[in-house]
Amino acid sequence: MSADGTGFLYPFLGAAERDADSLLADLARSAREKAAESAALQRATIAEFGELVEKAAAEMAPRFAAGGRLYTFGNGGSSTDAAILAGLFARPPEGRPLPSWSLAADQAVLTALGNDVGFDLVFSRQLIAHSGESDIALAMSTSGGSADLLRALEEAKRRGLLTIGFAGYDGGRFATEGYVDFCFVVRSQSVHRIQESQAVLGYLLWAAVQRRLAEGEGSDERR
């Protein structure tokens, strides 16, 4: 194992003497195994949640048609994923641009709230300031248990927003607290694999919303 304690990730790199061909073969095999694992989890996740994606999209489309906005948020890598998803809705490669905003996008607001009122409230306070009952709150997490995300989802639910949660493992408190209208749980113990499958779910959700809006399903009053 390496001195920094990360040798378990790639044990074949720790050998004192390795010929280049053998090392490259091990690296290639490791990459293939990870890709296969990720693809299998993505297929299983789509099979489990494909119908729920369509149901969530059916609720989101009328809200967008009524002028609602999507607010996304998360921590760490999930914050980046949430920002990417907001960007997909707001600036799609095709289809209709939809109002969407990552609540971690403004670092001045985020750090001011963290300093002044506490990090647990950095997202809920923004929803209080900006959101309305036609809006949508979407939280991304691997654990499903982050306090700041739960506070925001609770506030969103209280204010009449549609709430969506992406989680991993067993779903954590996203799956049990009752604040999430649509909860998508990627059933894995690997943060990397969870986030990869969540990215696929996010894309499918965007595509389903676009399809419903194109078909005019969001033109009626909110259901």
Results as ranks from 00 to 15, higher is better:
101 W>I: 14
39 A>G: 03
103 L>G: 02
119 F>C: 07
15 A>Y: 07
103 L>F: 04
98 L>F: 02
125 R>W: 00
112 A>K: 08
25 A>R: 14
61 A>N: 11
95 G>T: 15
100 S>Y: 04
87 G>T: 07
107 Q>V: 15
38 S>G: 06
35 A>M: 09
38 S>K: 06
85 L>F: 11
5 G>H: 10
84 I>V: 12
9 L>C: 00
66 A>P: 15
127 L>D: 06
99 P>E: 09
69 R>Y: 04
114 G>K: 03
23 L>E: 12
41 L>Q: 09
101 W>A: 09
99 P>T: 13
121 L>P: 04
97 P>E: 05
55 K>W: 05
110 L>C: 03
92 P>H: 11
87 G>A: 04
128 I>Q: 10
82 A>D: 05
115 N>L: 02
26 D>R: 11
84 I>F: 02
38 S>M: 11
42 Q>M: 12
105 A>G: 04
65 A>E: 02
126 Q>A: 02
54 E>R: 14
83 A>N: 08
126 Q>G: 04
90 A>N: 05
53 V>I: 15
87 G>W: 00
128 I>E: 10
15 A>T: 14
112 A>L: 07
17 E>H: 08
33 E>S: 06
74 G>D: 13
64 F>G: 01
118 G>Y: 05
76 G>C: 14
54 E>H: 11
64 F>Q: 09
45 T>S: 06
115 N>Q: 03
7 G>I: 11
66 A>E: 14
124 S>G: 00
35 A>H: 09
96 R>H: 12
118 G>R: 12
62 P>M: 07
85 L>K: 05
70 L>Q: 12
70 L>F: 10
99 P>L: 09
119 F>L: 12
15 A>Q: 13
62 P>R: 09
125 R>G: 00
19 D>C: 03
65 A>D: 03
99 P>F: 01
38 S>W: 02
34 K>E: 14
7 G>W: 03
125 R>Y: 00
47 A>L: 10
41 L>C: 11
11 P>S: 04
96 R>I: 15
110 L>V: 12
84 I>P: 04
105 A>L: 10
125 R>H: 08
86 A>L: 03
127 L>N: 06
104 A>I: 06
89 F>E: 04
65 A>T: 07
80 T>W: 05
72 T>A: 08
61 A>G: 12
31 A>W: 03
51 E>R: 14
23 L>N: 11
69 R>P: 05
42 Q>W: 01
18 R>M: 10
47 A>P: 10
48 E>H: 09
124 S>I: 02
70 L>R: 12
23 L>P: 02
68 G>P: 01
67 G>W: 10
34 K>L: 10
